[in-house]
Simulated scan of single mutants.
Amino acid sequence: MKYMIYGATGYTGELIAKEASAQGQQPLLAGRNPEKVAAMAKELGLAHKSFALESVSQIAAELADVDLVIHCAGPFELTAEIMMKACIESKTHYLDITGELDIFELAFSFHEQAKAAGVVLCPGVGFDVIPTDCVAAQLKAKMPDATHLQLGFDSRSRMSRGTAKTSARRIGEGGAVRKNGKITNVPLAYKSKKIDFGGGEKLAMTIPWGDVSTAYHSTGIGNIEVFIPASPKLVSRMRKMNWFRWLFRMEFMKNWLMKKIDAQPAGPKDEERAKYYTWVWGEARNAKGDVETMRKQVLNGYTLTAKGAVTMAKHVLTTEHEGGFSTPSKLYGADLVEQFLYTPEAE
């Protein structure tokens, strides 16, 4: 079975490629820059190819002998659709590491086409959204009649440039929650509350995280919100931005933000990732007011993404699947997160 890591020279793509190599696997490395892809392939002793994402037929031809792609080249709002369509055409399983809400819903819209082709479409096989998705599924198992679900995470690790770009491009759209089964656009910092994610109580605010899509598909719970810690100052600033966030829908503003982000470091260094683990939290509630709460201490998000993507690729390639859209917890099982719990020796 042959699989490809596309976008292997980006910060997270490189982590995935190195994790796969460390596990004795030999994925095909690919990306848009021939020199960078060749240099990484030489360093890891792996095969490589380079191609741009120009047309569905062109990409499908490049994937003709590839069984699975781990797509790492974001922002995914610009690259995921064409890669998904090419994977369906070439009958190549598709995984990615997105956290973009719209991309999960896009993949879901291709469910029937992918199922007919026998192709698995499973976005979010990294920190976005393995741990939160598994917590959601485990809470659903503990409370089958849950009507409301809140999820969140607390990480002190810096963002990579790719994650920062994704977040920045979304600002103009505001926040998002799920109400009565429907994804609903809401203001930035729509809700705030104090939450003990696992390391003590903190003020937190809602964000338009991927679980607003995936947790619904994994659990069927119709009301979903996702939170991260935020200082009172940040909550206030985000709420003030609602008055002029329309500006951030303009391409010139997006380009300005992208240039500022490009000046930042690629992502957290190895020692930072080893030091800063993540707390993941979830709370389910039913119509009677009963509550189930769950907390898990997991690896740093980028380390988890590298290990999670490789684990999911191995699983898809060695297990029978009927194809179509899926979430990590549905595809692998809600116990997937248990492989990525943090211990001092885990990194």
Results as ranks from 00 to 15, higher is better:
Leu121Arg: 09
Leu121Val: 08
Leu121Gln: 04
Pro123Thr: 07
Pro123Met: 11
Pro123His: 12
Pro123Arg: 09
Gly124Glu: 09
Val125Pro: 06
Val125Lys: 03
Gly126Trp: 07
Phe127Ser: 02
Phe127Asn: 09
Asp128Ser: 10
Val129Cys: 15
Val129Gln: 12
Ile130Cys: 14
Ile130His: 12
Pro131Lys: 05
Thr132His: 00
Asp133Pro: 03
Cys134Lys: 00
Val135His: 13
Val135Arg: 08
Val135Tyr: 10
Ala136His: 06
Ala137Val: 02
Ala137Thr: 06
Gln138Lys: 14
Leu139His: 03
Leu139Ser: 04
Leu139Pro: 04
Ala141Asn: 14
Lys142His: 11
Lys142Thr: 09
Lys142Gln: 15
Lys142Glu: 15
Met143Leu: 15
Met143Val: 09
Met143Phe: 11
Pro144Cys: 00
Ala146Trp: 05
Thr147Asn: 13
His148Leu: 13
Gln150Pro: 08
Gln150Asp: 15
Gln150Lys: 15
Leu151Pro: 00
Gly152Leu: 14
Gly152Thr: 09
Gly152Asn: 13
Gly152Gln: 13
Phe153Gly: 10
Phe153Asn: 01
Asp154Thr: 07
Arg156Asp: 14
Arg156Thr: 12
Ser157Met: 10
Ser157Arg: 05
Ser157Cys: 05
Ser157Leu: 10
Met159Ser: 10
Met159Ile: 00
Met159Gln: 02
Ser160Gln: 09
Ser160Lys: 11
Arg161Cys: 06
Arg161Lys: 14
Arg161Thr: 06
Thr163Tyr: 13
Thr163Lys: 01
Ala164Cys: 08
Ala164Gly: 13
Ala164Ile: 09
Lys165Val: 10
Lys165Leu: 09
Thr166His: 06
Thr166Gly: 15
Thr166Gln: 10
Thr166Asp: 11
Thr166Leu: 12
Ser167Phe: 13
Ser167Asp: 03
Ile171Thr: 01
Ile171Gln: 05
Ile171Pro: 01
Gly172Cys: 05
Gly172Gln: 04
Gly172Asp: 04
Gly172Ser: 07
Glu173Thr: 07
Gly174Gln: 03
Gly174His: 00
Gly174Ser: 02
Ala176Thr: 02
Ala176Glu: 01
Val177Thr: 05
Val177Ala: 05
Arg178Met: 11
Arg178Thr: 04
Lys179Asp: 01
Lys179Glu: 10
Asn180Thr: 04
Asn180Gln: 13
Gly181Met: 06
Gly181Val: 03
Lys182His: 01
Ile183Gln: 01
Ile183Arg: 07
Ile183Lys: 03
Thr184Leu: 11
Thr184Asp: 07
Asn185Ser: 10
Val186Lys: 02
Pro187Tyr: 01
Leu188Trp: 01
Leu188Cys: 00
Leu188His: 01
Leu188Asn: 03
